[in-house]
Amino acid sequence: MNLYLKELKSSRKSLFFWSLGMVFMIVAGMSKYGSLATTGQSLNELMNTMPQSIQAIMGIGTLDLSTPIGYFGVVFSNLILIASIHAILMGANMIAKEETDKTAEFLLTKPLSRAQILSAKLCATVTSILLLNIITSVVSMIILSAYYSEASSLTSLMLLMTGMFFVQLIFASLGIFIATINKSVKKTSAIATAALLITYLLSIAINLSKPLENLQYLTPFKYFEAKTILVDQSLDPLFLMLTLCIVVLFTSFSYGIFKNRDLQI
């Protein structure tokens, strides 16, 4: 509990700035909608004239841009990217920082088992990504309600944010896994960033090229996309299962490795 609270406290500042980034992204993204909304239906037509590849990169696909929530779907693909960067760096740094800052000799000589330490850090990471998710949800809700006051858009928003939370969970557990398995702590954040970049670029490549569709299981960015969630009004159970498996697998590997490895000091 002591360690958990300390970790939460020390991530306050970074959480504040990440939230600020989120708010900026939502406000900036949706304000464009505000100025475009007056033209109504024509927005969809405008988008349709764009080449397929541009649409794919912007993540538009089948989104109905004439509705606020549809337009929010486009903004959402940016939000999920930011949230994922936050989650993977948070997870990786949570473990690696004790070794890079050389505080491991302090913490790891306290009467705690390695599993207890990892659990406290895991809980702090999940709390932090959950807080970022909640802040994003609340701000999105407020902004959306300025355009729209329909219950259906609220449920859609909730679905999107739940999807985002699952993606955050995947990346956080991946970050922790990278930090525990990695022999050289200095490279941890570089590897984490690379992992994120690769999965993100892969998701764009899949959007651009139909034959790559089978690779969608490899990138969490394809698991809960706005264009499918808003049409189906539900999260894909297959990807939910996959998320669960990935998170459980990464986490249990992390416990196993962290318990038995030498600290880098």
């Binding site: 800052d101 000799e105 009467p111 088992s113």
Partner: peptide, 21 residues
Amino acid sequence: YAPEIKKEIGYLPSEVFYYDN
């Protein structure tokens, strides 16, 4: 029995590093 033993140990490392802030 590492966690149990450590309750009764005080350790001063050769190089002291703490949370700076």
